[in-house]
Amino acid sequence: MKKTFFTTFLLLTFFIPVMFPQEEKKVASPLFEQPLLITSAGQSAEVRLASVLAKRGELNFILSKTATPKDLENIKTLALVLGVSLKGLGAAGLDIAKEKERVNLLVEEAQKKNIPLLCLHLGGESRRGQLSDAFISIFLPKAKMVIVVKSGNKDKLFTRLCEEHKIPLIEVEKTVDTLEPLKNAFK
């Protein structure tokens, strides 16, 4: 009897996770603290979108599209909105190299101060491409969590990078669906 029970238990232990795999988008508990600093990595318009989401989620946030290390004062979370827009870069008086350098300095400083990084990709498929992908590859591995609009992950770039670096990934259908996971990610 004991043996049968033990065998059944082992089998169930083995098969249940296989039969009902845990969804990759489930994040057990809030990972981040407030206030958060929202900035862009590539100057796409989605940085503004992230701020509207944060506002609707009643999060305590500061938006600075071109934040520098000194803006991290009293900040508990850094949110990077990934996606390159040449128009946005032009309007901010930046080019790819300068933007990369700015974000790099910011992330390095955040790491020094143990400020966790949240990466958002809200532009979907149209905000992918050589330039955006370069930013994704550099900064996403440093994130503690990633939220991505599904169409931006058609080729599973985000899935692959998150698996490789063991980062929780949340995929949402539409930009508006980012609101709940964003709220839930914060204490």
């Binding site: 318009a45 989605e46 503004r48 827009s85 149209s126």
Partner: peptide
Amino acid sequence: SQTFSRINKDQYEKLI
């Protein structure tokens, strides 16, 4: 369309 959506996203700040 994809075009409409992309332009809409690009001009989001102005529209808001």
